[in-house]
Design a protein around this nucleic acid. Sequence first.
DNA 1: TTCAACCGACTGACCAGTCGGTTTGCAGGG
DNA 2: CCCTGCAAACCGACTGGTCAGTCGGTTGAA
Lengths: 221, 221
Amino acid sequence: MTTQKQQTREKLLGVAEEVFAEHGYYDTAVDEIVEKSGMSKGAVYFHFPSKERLFLAVMDQMSKRLMKRVEREIAPLTDPVERLDRAMETAVRTLTKHKTLAKLLLVKGYTVGHGFAKRRQEIMGRFAEMTEGLIREAQGNEGAVDAKTAALAWQGAISEVVVRWLETGKPDPVQEALPTLRTMLHGALGIAENLPHLSGSADAPRVPLPSRARDKKAALQ
Amino acid sequence: MTTQKQQTREKLLGVAEEVFAEHGYYDTAVDEIVEKSGMSKGAVYFHFPSKERLFLAVMDQMSKRLMKRVEREIAPLTDPVERLDRAMETAVRTLTKHKTLAKLLLVKGYTVGHGFAKRRQEIMGRFAEMTEGLIREAQGNEGAVDAKTAALAWQGAISEVVVRWLETGKPDPVQEALPTLRTMLHGALGIAENLPHLSGSADAPRVPLPSRARDKKAALQ
DNA sequence: TTCAACCGACTGACCAGTCGGTTTGCAGGG
DNA sequence: CCCTGCAAACCGACTGGTCAGTCGGTTGAA
């Protein structure tokens, strides 16, 4: 049973997520979070020792959710290439559905400078490790490419595409970019493109992922 | 002949670049730029209407320089694939040599939120257009992949690799990542890897770019 | 003499964090 | 079941520091 205390904490985290994602760290006044949450400044500083720590708590929560989500999606799959594909698809889809997540995680401009860079680095590092594992699996034992660099590069590629979408709305829907991304990734890793579960060519981008039951408006996680 | 006025303006821009890159926009006080430049606050506000505009001027200047540099490097080349490779190499090398440039352009955390996102988007857009052209050339007329998305993805990949290097110092030297990046890019675009001018395989990353006369400590531009 | 260029002390707004105070939940004694 | 006491949770007016931007003043070149 969730205590009153937990509820308050979560309310604050939720509102903070929204507000930080909208204005960025520096352009967010703690008082704004206070107002929108219906709580008081005292409550904020009872639960979090500082604005910075509140922000970091938000980041941590969100990145953990995204990671868990991806892991959950690929868990039932065994084919390494499918796992890689599904991971990419889930990441794009989730980031896309939860703009606040995308803004805070990817549009670094929405975040900040200084000590935060280190934290961001840690978070991205965790994702990179996961991706690296997936890539290694998918490549087989003699890949043409260094998995660590590939993982990073790949993360960057996805990030940039999502950011472009965030800022310009294109492509609409983002899913249109997926076949291209997939083709590129496979090519980049030297994976043959003749897989049964998709018809790879990206020039006539058709939504390629009816897969999975859609959890319509499920909150992230 | 450069007037006194111009000199002051450039001094301010130069110092601003340094300081902004080190602390980020918000953690930089105009007074710090004033001190380090030996000028006065009045001078700053004589040349730039606001802190924000000063920052944007810095961004513009740097991105233009990087772009010109890349254009200059690929100008003498005709083979499209070589042009693409050289562009990538130049970008990585330049970003790597000029950390302030990389920090401001790539580590968005060092920059800011709000109206800046738009400007960043414009700047990245310009690069993307150039990259897109190069990719189109290199692919020939029937590429397997959407050039716009590919350009973006590619930019993201490079960015992330450079950022990792900025923050962790790995790989050391960054150039070690280049063969992998190149292999990935070629694969991603469906370009055959049997080019004469490099031996592609990335597992024994050897510095692959003796090319071009090295302009040892040349200032960017 | 004029004015563009520069100087730097000052101000006004903003805002993170504090702190004395109030409310609420609850343990245990009657 | 009520009362009492106590601490955890919450409140919000206030403070202290920071800093972007201003403005009246100075300088030096033409």
